[in-house]
């Protein structure tokens, strides 16, 4: 199953490796290095999935995801965009805060850095299986 994925991260090295792996898996990957650019791209292009780093310059990942969900509530998009957050701030030991952030952002999954690339593709496949890609 191939999909159009937007990857948002300001770390070129992380972006390069992730993109390589996703392209290997047959996905089409676009890149953004900050939240506002990403929001514009999400509004303009039809993406099947968003891979979003949390610690971004300007608007952070939680907020970008939150805005996307706001747009969805306004009916800007035809369908719901699955979102995976990437973050180095592992909050699994603080479940209350983790839940708070996840509820705010409305993201589907969170993956803590450093992560396994296979783990990421597995998550992507699962989410895509839930919502079939457009077209």
């Amino acid at each position: 199953m191939t999909a159009k994925i937007l990857m948002v991260d300001d770390e070129p090295d992380v972006v390069e490796t992730v993109r390589y792996r996703l392209q290997q898996a047959g996905h089409e990957v676009d890149i953004a290095d900050n939240g506002l650019v990403a929001l514009g791209m999400v509004r303009a292009g039809k993406y099947d999935l968003l891979v979003l780093d949390v610690m971004l310059p300007g608007e952070n990942g939680y907020r970008v995801a939150h805005y996307v969900r706001e747009d969805e509530r306004q009916g800007v998009y035809e369908r719901r965009l699955p979102i995976i957050l990437l973050t180095a701030r592992d909050l699994s030991a603080e479940p209350e805060r983790e839940k708070m952030f996840m509820d705010f952002s409305g993201a589907d999954r969170v993956i803590y850095k450093p992560f396994d690339l296979d783990h990421l593709t597995r998550n992507i496949d699962e989410l895509l299986a839930e919502v079939p890609p457009a077209g």
């Binding site: 770390e11 490796t17 992730v18 180095a88 592992d90």
Partner: peptide, 21 residues
């Protein structure tokens, strides 16, 4: 400690990903 750890994790991600590839 928390900040340093998070800062360390980002380059670590790149190394790990590169090695995985």
């Amino acid at each position: 400690v928390s900040t340093v750890s998070h800062e360390l994790r980002t380059p670590l991600t790149s190394i790990k990903n590169a090695l995985d590839l």
